[in-house]
Amino acid sequence: MTAARRHVRSIDEVGRERIIKLLALTGHMHEINQRPVPKVPALRGRVVCNLFLEDSTRTRLSFDTAAKRLGADTVAFTGSGSSLSKGESLRDTVETLAAMRLDAIVVRHRSAGAPWQIAQWCEAAIVNAGDGRHAHPTQALLDAYTIGRRTGRGADLSGLRVAIVGDIVNSRVARSTTAIASMLGAEVTHVGPSTLLDPRLDVQRCTDLDQIIGDVDVLYMLRMQNERMDAAPVPPGGEYTRRFGLTPERAANIRTDALLMHPGPINHGTEMTVDPSTMPQSAITDQVSYGVAVRMAVLFDLLGTGEMEEES
């Protein structure tokens, strides 16, 4: 096993071949989730630690559910994020956990790179559940799976036009979802004011949403990451929403066969003033639903032995 094989920390590190395998495995996990009793013993006896050092409810619940549906035991470690403030180094925390002989650590941390540091200090497989502004590979996997399933394209997204709109520069979702979409053949454009785009990322950029909104196959709206901002990148008041928000007028311009996506939670009234649940294009609830299946696939890929065992 190579180092990269043992972890799921970034899309680039996982690589295209294994991404495609994980997406196929996700389909299998989704079938399990449709059963009356959505549970298999594939990871019975395995221990998964959810180490969430940054606020998270949805992702943590998603991983916890995924582990339990595969029969793994879960332990949770949550904290405010700053090990410095507690006088304990991140290494101290991880070595304490390592002593409990965990099989996998699912980590969310407000600082980029924490999953790489943790991997140096313990033997567990590391799953990155979001590190700072860097990466969120399971979000990217569920986004790719959602797009592939809703469009019937599977893991081949070639030629699809994906617009990611909003706070690109502060978004780990934007980085990872851009990486996976590009890897699977989609054409990704980042949309927003220049203060929220990053000219050094190797993708197309657009500062006028209205120019492209009628052409895109996937409209991916990001949440404004207000907690990661200094020197406010947009003026106060409603200007951001007027330029880049999904208003009813803009929603009317989206193609009927396009997809509307959002990683959640939505800042209603900021990036969206429409109710997405009224839009047939919305794939937002699919994203949440497939999120559990994706995380089951990731945990099984890291901790499972051989093929999926069926319970019956």
């Binding site: 410095l84 407000r110 600082s111 790179g113 200090w121």
Partner: peptide, 10 residues
């Protein structure tokens, strides 16, 4: 060592 074995931002 324990000051450098922290997340980069810390």
């Amino acid at each position: 060592r324990h000051h450098k074995e922290r997340p980069l931002e810390e």
